[in-house]
């Protein structure tokens, strides 16, 4: 269980990290492909894609990740 005091941000990623990941999944890609395009470590890519999927910014189908409608709206507004 993760302990939270006084509420919680929807995701732990910063705005610049959000944009980086959402741009990286505009087309269906695997986590390994996101590692190559972002040059981030695998643990960071896996944990971030999981957070973005749970918050519905990204859709996950098997090992593929794609930006969702909510994710596209975030990119349009930021």
């Amino acid at each position: 269980m993760i302990l939270v005091a006084c509420g919680k941000e929807e995701v732990s990623l910063s705005p610049s990290q959000m944009k980086l990941f959402l741009q990286a999944v505009k087309e269906p890609v695997t986590a390994e492909e996101v590692v190559k395009s972002t040059e981030l470590p695998i643990f960071k890519v896996r944990s971030s894609l999981r957070e973005l999927t749970e918050a519905a910014y990204v859709e996950n189908n098997g090992d593929q990740y794609t930006i969702s409608q909510k994710g596209k709206e975030y990119l349009d507004q930021n």
């Binding site: 695998i42 960071k44 896996r46 944990s47």
Partner: peptide, 11 residues
Amino acid sequence: HGPIKLEDYKG
């Protein structure tokens, strides 16, 4: 760095 699972480090 946000929520992390040990399995995120596989590889």
